[in-house]
Design a protein around this nucleic acid. Sequence first.
DNA 1: GGTATTTGATATAGTGGATAACAATTATTA
DNA 2: TAATAATTGTTATCCACTATATCAAATACC
Lengths: 173, 173
Amino acid sequence: MTVSKAAVVDAAKASRTVRKEPAEEATETSPLHLGELSELLGYSLKRAQLKVFEDFLHCVAPLQLTPAQFSVLLLLEKNPGRNQTEIANTLGILRPNFVAMLDGLESRDLCARARSANDRRSHILMLTDKGRAVLARAKKLVASKHEARLNELLGPANRAALLSMLTKIAREF
Amino acid sequence: MTVSKAAVVDAAKASRTVRKEPAEEATETSPLHLGELSELLGYSLKRAQLKVFEDFLHCVAPLQLTPAQFSVLLLLEKNPGRNQTEIANTLGILRPNFVAMLDGLESRDLCARARSANDRRSHILMLTDKGRAVLARAKKLVASKHEARLNELLGPANRAALLSMLTKIAREF
DNA sequence: GGTATTTGATATAGTGGATAACAATTATTA
DNA sequence: TAATAATTGTTATCCACTATATCAAATACC
């Protein structure tokens, strides 16, 4: 009955797990007016992004992969033999921060560093067999649970239009 | 206020300020294949959000307002007399983290805390005159520089459709 | 051969987000 | 009414992510 506006997270959880804890009342005050906030593209963009990432984490939880880690694995699969700088750059990750990230993936035996024959400074990156297997499972989870849910909410045409505009902003803005 | 110099940032600057620094060469290797990354909605969502926030920062830089601060001022304007918990909750900010944020705004005399008469625990929040003035100027900058640029890139109809879908995801996903 | 650049790495700092706990105050209820 | 629970603002603290400077090793450039 009481619409809990307390936490966005709770609303999300409730949407897939109906729970009826009476303690979740949260003093019923009149809802606030967003005003021009609802016309601010950046605001909706941020809120939507948090929701999507949260759902991604949830869907791929059994594999313990973050969106960033998933993007690295995807990139390694399609671009074998690249070094850390190249992978990090195309993902917008700074090289210093990419080191710890790779350490994590490598310690889980999902990818491996190998010294390049041409340039002994750089590390060639590649997926391990386990990395390929985990990535394959992750793809299935993302497609069947995560993206499918977005498709259901927006419809295929709208989803495509949304993706197109977001890509345009990301590239040309 | 730190105008970062990451790769993404440089690309953005280049899009509005054509510069020809020969040092910006960056070893010309063949571009990497994004693969299914370009079909991942969350990925484009995140990259687009970073771009939009970056441009917001740039457009409203003379007023030294972050997107989060701007959203607080907007909310205070449309909802005078609310307390910290209410404002923080509707913005998805946790109360502990909202304290320092308010400290910053209050120290700049953009808003003020006042003890409530009914409930002496809570602080009633309101814009100061300076806060109203700064907000008015910020709105003009955002509309004329930031949102106008998005409109120019997408077109009014597409922009409206994008906002609609993002809002839907933020609320219903 | 000497200088500059690149690569991976380390250290470090800043920021945003999250939880636990606390005093003061208010609400509940026994 | 007295005792207990809940709420508010706050502090402290932790974690994740981001950003910069710097380094040694290796390579590229004159």
